[in-house]
Design a protein around this nucleic acid. Sequence first.
DNA 1: ATGGTTGTTCGACAA
Length: 262
Amino acid sequence: MSFTLATWNINSVRLREVLVARLLTDEQPDILCLQECKSPVEKIPLETFRALGYTHIVARGQKGYNGVAILSKLPITDAGERDFASLGHARHVAARLENGVTIHNCYVPAGGDIPDREVNLKFGQKLDYLTEMRDLFHGEKPEKSILVGDLNIAPREDDVWSHKQLLKIVSHTPIEVDHLNAVIEAGDWVDVTRADIPSGQLYSWWSYRAADWDAADKGRRLDHIWASRDIANAAHGSRILRAVRGWDGPSDHAPVFASFDL
DNA sequence: ATGGTTGTTCGACAA
């Protein structure tokens, strides 16, 4: 069995319904995981996605913030959600394919502006969120599992436009990178994108605030696809669709793709 | 060092 999977922080699924439909039509991933839907589940434009063949949908939502959804052409069942750090936010949902593969769709808290939990509650919540993810995967080692999403951390030097200039910027601080790597180690996860594309600058997010995001190219790789060790060698064909960041009325994130031959 | 943009929803907040 083979399938292609994508992850995309959509920054309002209702405002960008047409963009989601365009990606589904143009690229035909079997599964699309969305974050920051910013919508209750009942207000997600599911009929549009169903009409394009994405008839299997697992989602969690809330009004105005967060929200995660998995749209699939392949049959999936709801495999529950986790409320890491007990924030009461819709930031995680899991689905299971008929071949037993579990997909975790995650939206890790951004963490605010100041990288110090003593003065910034949101930064502490981000670290706690990652610690509880680590503890889950330490307790039950993932098998036949894929974890995707906006993890809001760019771990490697070549995952950001300037390692030196971002060392004290939330998303690339050493303590965040340590926490993210602890999740990877606890679950023995493989970073599929970097297994496929081992060197060179790689970004999935560019700020709205840049006058010319494409020319400035001050990006960060915040969006990830991981696989559990047992299926990691089935992954291939990773790519980040940078051109999507240039569509009219874009999300500030580009979608990340990977394929699996299982 | 600062300010820069966008979305939700009409005033802040979050990113």
